[in-house]
Nucleic acid binder design. Structure first.
Lengths: 178, 178
DNA sequence: CGTACTTCTTCATCTACATGAATGCGAATG
DNA sequence: CATTCGCATTCATGTAGATGAAGAAGTACG
C-alpha cells in the first residue's frame, strides 16, 4: 500500500460523495463492481467467508483507490464488501478512466507505474502470509503502516493479518513483556 | 496468472538466452533485480526463509513475465530466487521498457491493463491464503492452472500453496477416497 | 546392472493458532 | 446517571498443518 494520491487523472473538482462511518459502499453480490477514490477518511475492503468470518483485504486511507479488482477484470461476481471506517469523502470512478485514450501518455505511464508498485506490495503480502509467523507479520504491519495502527481497532488489524483478535492480543502481550 | 504473451513491447526477434533445467537466473542478494520474459520453458520465483524453507511465489510458463517487483520498485535487496524448471529460452528485459515514452499509447494502455489483471490474480491469492483451508487452495490451483499441475512436481505445488509436501500428500489421498 | 538420488507417501508427535466462553472497560445512548 | 454495546483481554480446549523419520517407487548415471 503506498500513496497514490493526486494521480489517476482524478479531477480534483469531481463530484464527491460523503459517507458516514459504518456506511456500506459495496456488497458481495452487487451486480457491478465499483472503484472508489478516497479524498478524506478511511475505507476498507473485506470478504466474509463461508463460516461468516471477516477477512480484510486492504485499508484505503485518503489518497488511495480501492476496488474488487478480480471482479472488475475477470467479470466474476462481486465478492468484496467495502465500507467506511471513518466519515469519508469519496469519488466513484469508472475503471475505464484509469487508462483511457484521452489521458496524456505521461499520465498513463504514471498510473501504470503506480499499479506496478501495488504489485510489489502484494508480492510482499503473499510472501508474508506464506512464510512468516503471525508476530512477524504484525511487526511488519506496524512498520509499514504506523499511522493506520492508531486509526483502526485491533480486531481489524488481526483479520488483515490473517489471525484472530485473540491471537493478536496474546502476541501484543508477549511483545510488551520484552 | 494469466497469459501475457506477445505483449509488453517485446521484440519477437530480441536476443534470447537459453538455459538448462535447474539453471539459476537470479539469486537473493544480487545487486540488481532482473525481469525475464519466458519464450519457451518454465521458470519459477521463490524465497528461502530464515529456516531454510522454500516458498514459491509464482510459476512462469511460456509467454509470462517474472521478476522481483518489490525489489525493482522499492529498491529493496533482491529476495526472490528465479530458476528454470525446464530447459527455457528467456529474454532479459529492462524494466523501463514496459512503459517507456517511446512506446505507443495503445501499447502502454495494453500493458497497463495486463498489470491490472495481475492485481486481480494476486487479490485472489491473498484472500485464499487468509481464508481458505489447504484443500480448497489446492482445488482452486488445479482448476486455475490445470496444465501446470502436470509439469511441476507435487512438492513445488505444495510450497506454492503455502503447505508442506507431506500435507499435500495427505490431502490428495483424502481427495482420491471420494 | 547396481548405486545413488529424488519424489511421494505414511505415521507419530508437536505447535501455532483457532474456537468458545468469561471478564473488564470505555464510549455511546437513552 | 444507568444501561447497553463494542472492544480488548485471558484462559481452557481443539485442530490443521508442521516436523522428523522412514520406506517404496521411479529415474539418472557410473
Amino acid at each position: 500500500m503506498e500513496n497514490i494520491s493526486d494521480i489517476f487523472n482524478i479531477d480534483p473538482n469531481a463530484q464527491t460523495k460523503a459517507y458516514r462511518k459504518g456506511a456500506l459502499l459495496q456488497s458481495a453480490g452487487d451486480s457491478k463492481a465499483l472503484t472508489f477514490y478516497v479524498k478524506t477518511g478511511l475505507l476498507r475492503s473485506y470478504i466474509i467467508d463461508s463460516k461468516g468470518k471477516e477477512h480484510i483485504f486492504m485499508f484505503a486511507p485518503e489518497g488511495w483507490i480501492i476496488a474488487d479488482v478480480e471482479s472488475l477484470e475477470y467479470g466474476k461476481p462481486v465478492e468484496l464488501y467495502i465500507d467506511c471506517l471513518e466519515d469519508s469523502e469519496v469519488v466513484i470512478l469508472e475503471k475505464e478512466l484509469l487508462f483511457n485514450a484521452e489521458a496524456s501518455k505521461e499520465m498513463i505511464i504514471k498510473n501504470a507505474n503506480l499499479l506496478y508498485r501495488r504489485l510489489g506490495v502484494l508480492q510482499r503480502r503473499v510472501l508474508m502470509l506464506m512464510s512468516a509467523p503471525a508476530v512477524d507479520r504484525y511487526e511488519y504491519f506496524l512498520e509499514a503502516y504506523p499511522n493506520l495502527a492508531n486509526r483502526v481497532p485491533q480486531r481489524m488489524i488481526a483479520t488483515y493479518l490473517g489471525i484472530t483478535p485473540q491471537a493478536l492480543s496474546t502476541i501484543r502481550a508477549k511483545m510488551a513483556h520484552s
